[in-house]
Measured scan of single mutants.
Amino acid sequence: SSQSQGISSSSTSTMPNSSQSSHSSSGTLSSLETVSTQELYSIPEDQEPEDQEPEEPTPAPWARLWALQDGFANLECVNDNYWFGRDKSCEYCFDEPLLKRTDKYRTYSKKHFRIFREVGPKNSYIAYIEDHSGNGTFVNTELVGKGKRRPLNNNSEIALSLSRNKVFVFFDLTVDDQSVYPKALRDEYIMSKTLGSGACGEVKLAFERKTCKKVAIKIISKRKFAIGSAREADPALNVETEIEILKKLNHPCIIKIKNFFDAEDYYIVLELMEGGELFDKVVGNKRLKEATCKLYFYQMLLAVQYLHENGIIHRDLKPENVLLSSQEEDCLIKITDFGHSKILGETSLMRTLCGTPTYLAPEVLVSVGTAGYNRAVDCWSLGVILFICLSGYPPFSEHRTQVSLKDQITSGKYNFIPEVWAEVSEKALDLVKKLLVVDPKARFTTEEALRHPWLQDEDMKRKFQDLLSEENESTALPQVLAQPSTSRKRPREGEAEGAETTKRPAVCAAVL
């Protein structure tokens, strides 16, 4: 046999249950609850290399294929790409003598399909299967379609040439079993990697079954959420508030809700932002270029202005709740996480202390139980975000031990490091100062900020419009641009040419 590394010779191994799959997660993409704000000051410096380099560890398999027929071997997927077919160049070659004697062998292509993985959001991997055969590759009886790919989820059954000719079961060793999710959700989405997690739940990458488009699904544990919100009269209202707010909003710089499922837990389906959180971008770069800050901040102002015009105060604006559309420097941003939002009543007064301390406005800290506050709290938070983006460190921090965090904020005395700000323009610093004003009545509004000289930049605004146009074009394009080929190089076993392929839609398939 010419099988590559990772293939075992026996096809009769006992199949494990899916609970053996491991679970991976990374930083929070968007969480309903406010958790302790991640610290920006503690960015690790590059460490000196050791005298002796450690040995390379043996790579762990990321997936496993269990053979369902004699003549096929099990495969431990270690590499990122595997070709399957009769050709000797394939990493998994159909060359077992037992297999060659079967009637089905002649229906398999020289290069029938490939399984591979690509880097997705949060640097996690996504597994795909890609059909290159004349007679078809099927996943859970659905045709992939020649020249098309679809994501592979845990426990997928792979069939060759005929939908009933099941050859492998695919085990993704990095994700959960699909069966743990409600059927209504599974009918519409293929669940994938964990993108982030918080005290009350997690955010998962998923794929729409009909279109193969990526989405983010925010899962909120009702049990954990009820415990964490025990002081509230009705904890469920917080989730329902977020859903109702998101459904009503329609702005290019605000995250869109696509679906909602109320089962044992809450499942909020949101558009996916491939670039992750602004927080991670700031930490990764230490600070952002001023031109990049301007492009992002302009969009934040437009989003918050839209919220305020619609009578909504976000109340928890922070870099973790600003998501980026891509890994590119120039990209769209979207505001997310409306769990603490407040729809303005007639009095415009709110007395609930919520939000993240580092970003809270002075009037929030001094008015607990005594007075109210209004939309100006969001403008203060925007000032803190702009400060961080321009400088790479927070204006107020618990680690300045000589003054408490509350006193720093209520006095408006931010930590100004001259040598850092020497590289920032006077106009940018002036806008920061106009937003970090203790008196909410004297603080800049979103309208005033948008009129500030720093943002009178036609090149930046043109760039934003171009990015918007690109997004609109990409969302308007159909996901499947061509029909699967019906040509046949070899006959199917026991049926006429093209008899099955043309009847089945290529579900969740995307043209390369």
Rank of each mutant, 00 (worst) to 15 (best):
W380H: 06
P440Q: 05
L270P: 01
A496W: 08
E363D: 06
R287Y: 13
T347Q: 06
Y266K: 09
C508S: 13
A499P: 09
T370V: 10
F396S: 03
T352Y: 01
S474N: 15
K248M: 08
Y393H: 08
L323R: 02
V282A: 08
H251N: 15
D407A: 13
D378A: 01
T347S: 08
L272P: 11
L349S: 07
K294G: 11
E423V: 09
E244C: 15
G276P: 03
L295R: 03
L365T: 08
C379M: 10
H340L: 15
K441E: 06
A371Y: 09
S381T: 13
F297Y: 13
Y393E: 01
K503R: 11
S391L: 15
S397P: 08
Y306N: 04
I245M: 02
K489P: 11
L302E: 01
H314C: 00
S411G: 12
L435S: 00
T501Q: 10
W454M: 10
E309D: 14
A449H: 00
E264H: 08
L349V: 07
Q305L: 08
T401L: 14
F338D: 00
D265T: 15
E290I: 08
T358M: 05
M300F: 03
L307I: 14
M350I: 12
G345D: 00
G284C: 09
E419V: 08
E426H: 14
L302Y: 09
I257A: 07
F261L: 04
K433G: 11
G494P: 03
R400W: 09
R375A: 05
F297N: 03
R315D: 04
E309Q: 09
S485Q: 15
R287I: 13
R287C: 14
T352D: 03
R462A: 12
Y373H: 05
S325F: 14
L317Q: 01
L382R: 01
L386G: 11
E328T: 07
V511I: 04
V322D: 02
H308M: 08
L512R: 14
A428V: 06
W380V: 10
G284R: 13
S469D: 09
S341V: 01
K334Y: 05
L382N: 00
E329K: 12
C354W: 07
E309L: 09
I409F: 06
A291K: 07
N415P: 15
K286H: 06
E447Q: 05
Y266E: 13
V283E: 04
G339Q: 00
D265R: 04
K289E: 14
E277R: 03
V364P: 01
K406N: 13
W421C: 04
E329L: 06
R351N: 07
L249C: 05
G355M: 05
L386I: 03
H340V: 01
K286Q: 13
P357A: 15
E423D: 04
